[in-house]
Amino acid sequence: MKITVASGKGGTGKTTIAVNLALSVEDAMLIDCDVEGPNSHIFFKEPMVKLKDVSIPTPRFDLDICTYCGKCSDFCQYNAISVVQDKLLFFEELCHGCGGCRIICPVNAISEEEHIIGTIEKGGEEELPLYHGRLNIGEPFGVPIIRELKGLAGERPITIFDSPPGTACPAVETMRDVDFCILVTEPTPFGLHDLKLSVDVIREIGTPFGVIVNRDGIGDDRVESYCERENIPLLARIPNDLEIARLYSEGIPMVKGIPRYGEMFRELFERIRGLVR
């Protein structure tokens, strides 16, 4: 079973929930898909070890063969190729590595070269393998790394994905093709605003989902009324507990410091299992 932990708003507790959920169920693995700022590993003692590079194909143009017909440029949805009169310009930072230009070129003037955009690292602990990716500084597009990460699922029967925040391509990539998505929010106007954006996106994707309210007790009850109105299951409420924050500041997951939370996460998992069936 694959479960993604996501949220529209940053800093609501995605990583906290992903790590603690993964630690609370047996036979799980954790994959941190926030390749622009992975941080699940801070809860584990072992350092992350590099597993592999991730690269995308980048076009190379043979200008002796090129007829400057402009078909590659017309095809490119990201405007990475400009053909102006008898000159061809390639803007590498706009290229998403789809390979379409090479296929479309009528005279085979385009070949491909692999361009490394980041790495995948492994860590965690014996009971819970952790994988994460790192997008190299200056690279604009992390989705290919997320795709590779998602392909690692299957080593254990249960995979928990920690999603990047927001509703853009990296978050969409992490929320699709999974059995269930947990949307984490906080009971504040900001939390509710960004939750609504996430709900719009996840409904479009079609992944079954539910909401966890983190830091319950701050703010108001508008998130709860919204979920009721929209028929969205409210899966759990995690209280705004100073003890959780204290453990967090020492890099200790709450389920390791406070056993009753382990019980709460196991119940959460059973609830999700019921909803997926």
Binding site: S73, N79, S82, V84, L89, F91, L94
Partner: peptide, 9 residues
């Protein structure tokens, strides 16, 4: 993205 190069073309 790439509005500038596209407009130039």
């Amino acid at each position: 993205g790439g509005a500038g190069p596209q407009a130039s073309q």
